[in-house]
Amino acid sequence: MADALLEALEYFSKEFDIEVPMWHTAHTKQLGLFRKVMFKKDDFIDKFPYDKFEMQIIDK
């Protein structure tokens, strides 16, 4: 699952023309509890043009 998550994060970062955000322990906890993770401006090294970037795991 970790490889698929990283692949999705890289894919959508490229699609939205943003850098890949930093992953913190809090993100791992969010993903485990809520099946989604939210990145804020502070999670990016460069200037981030949006309020937040969210990813959610949706079952097929």
Rank of each mutant, 00 (worst) to 15 (best):
residue 58 I to N: 02
residue 13 S to F: 01
residue 13 S to L: 05
residue 58 I to Q: 01
residue 27 H to Y: 03
residue 51 D to M: 02
residue 50 Y to W: 07
residue 49 P to Q: 06
residue 46 D to P: 14
residue 23 W to R: 07
residue 24 H to I: 04
residue 35 R to M: 14
residue 22 M to H: 04
residue 34 F to E: 13
residue 7 E to T: 06
residue 51 D to E: 10
residue 15 E to Y: 03
residue 58 I to C: 08
residue 54 E to V: 00
residue 37 V to S: 00
residue 19 E to F: 10
residue 24 H to K: 02
residue 20 V to T: 10
residue 36 K to N: 14
residue 2 A to V: 10
residue 36 K to L: 06
residue 9 L to G: 13
residue 39 F to P: 14
residue 43 D to K: 04
residue 11 Y to D: 07
residue 6 L to E: 12
residue 12 F to N: 13
residue 38 M to L: 03
residue 23 W to P: 02
residue 52 K to D: 15
residue 41 K to V: 07
residue 53 F to H: 11
residue 48 F to K: 06
residue 2 A to I: 11
residue 42 D to A: 15
residue 22 M to T: 05
residue 5 L to V: 10
residue 40 K to G: 15
residue 30 Q to P: 12
residue 28 T to F: 10
residue 3 D to G: 01
residue 20 V to Y: 01
residue 44 F to I: 05
residue 30 Q to F: 02
residue 19 E to M: 12
residue 9 L to I: 14
residue 20 V to Q: 09
residue 28 T to I: 08
residue 2 A to C: 12
residue 56 Q to A: 02
residue 22 M to I: 09
residue 13 S to I: 12
residue 59 D to C: 15
residue 26 A to F: 01
residue 45 I to N: 00
residue 24 H to G: 14
residue 32 G to T: 05
residue 1 M to R: 02
residue 27 H to V: 11
residue 47 K to E: 10
residue 52 K to M: 14
residue 7 E to C: 04
residue 53 F to S: 01
residue 32 G to L: 11
residue 41 K to I: 09
residue 26 A to P: 13
residue 1 M to L: 12
residue 21 P to V: 05
residue 31 L to P: 08
residue 32 G to K: 04
residue 28 T to P: 08
residue 39 F to W: 06
residue 29 K to Q: 04
residue 37 V to T: 14
residue 32 G to V: 15
residue 53 F to V: 10
residue 57 I to E: 09
residue 45 I to Y: 11
residue 49 P to R: 06
residue 34 F to R: 00
residue 39 F to N: 10
residue 10 E to D: 00
residue 49 P to D: 11
residue 52 K to V: 05
